[in-house]
């Protein structure tokens, strides 16, 4: 019993704080991902050619390169750029980011690229007839997108988006490399301090698992709440 108490004191509150940081970074990055991904998806489907290419460039750049490279460029690379700007007498300090901010942005932009593709697939699954009917009654293109296409597309995208939430919680663990004190970083810290790698890695892994399962349950409930008769069939077909 004493041994167990001692173990608990070893890991707590460190891992607890790590859990909070992991969830916090995941949540912020997911929101940034929606803010980047949804406009990118809409641009990719509906925008004029130059904007469509811009969206494609963003999506492919962030899906086609390692997350770690993106993280390093944003955290270590941007300050280099800042020095360059400073030499030219331009405002530059905004490019030097705190590590957790770099984590938000890297994970957010990376997730946004993947989310854009989920959203695009869902938007394209909504038949052209919906847009035509909306325009025929006098809606502008934007009105039709916002009131007719997106409410359906977002529901269709929800299952894929739920996966993205689970991925995010797990993949955010790379940010321990730039010393953001997330769950993974706290685990590493405890391992290096007490040298009990197997116990801690198993425990940290189990905590990630519980978080992911919890999120899956919550997302399942959200899907059920937003369900509309007839739309879920299209999910299966999509």
């Amino acid at each position: 019993m004493d041994g167990l108490l001692e173990f608990w004191n070893m890991i707590w509150p460190g891992l607890g704080k790590g859990i909070v940081i992991t969830l916090q970074v995941s949540a912020v990055a997911l929101v940034l991902g929606v803010l980047a991904g949804l406009p990118a998806a809409i641009a990719r489907v509906y925008a004029p050619r130059w904007l469509r290419w811009l969206a494609i460039a963003y999506i492919e750049a962030f899906r086609g390169t390692p997350l770690l490279v993106q993280l390093f460029i944003i955290y270590y690379g941007l300050p280099d750029l800042a020095r360059l700007l400073e030499g030219l007498g331009l405002p530059s300090q905004w490019l030097v980011l705190e590590n957790i901010v770099a984590a938000y942005i890297a994970l957010g932009l990376n997730s946004g690229a993947y989310q854009a593709e989920y959203f695009r697939g869902a938007i394209q699954a909504i038949g052209a007839g919906q847009m035509m009917a909306a325009r025929a009654m006098g809606m502008t293109r934007l009105q039709a997108i916002v009131t007719i296409v997106l409410p359906q597309a977002l529901r269709l995208a929800l299952p894929a988006w739920s996966n993205e939430v689970a991925y995010m919680v797990k993949y955010s663990s790379v940010i321990f490399i730039i010393a953001v004190p997330d769950l993974m970083a706290r685990g590493q810290f405890i391992i290096s301090r007490y040298y009990i790698p197997m116990e801690i890695l198993l425990l940290v892994g189990a905590i990630y698992l519980v978080m992911v399962l919890g999120i899956a349950t919550l997302m399942g409930q959200l899907e059920r709440r937003l369900r509309i008769p007839g739309l879920e069939l299209e999910v299966e077909r999509a």
């Binding site: 035509m132 009917a133 325009r135 025929a136 009654m137 502008t140 007719i148 359906q152 739309l231």
Partner: peptide, 20 residues
């Protein structure tokens, strides 16, 4: 065009009701 379309009702072969 949007304003003029308001005055033209259209009914399609495959209905195109808004599914949501």
């Amino acid at each position: 065009v949007d304003r003029i379309r308001e005055r033209v009702g259209m009914v399609f072969q495959d209905f195109n009701l808004f599914n949501h």
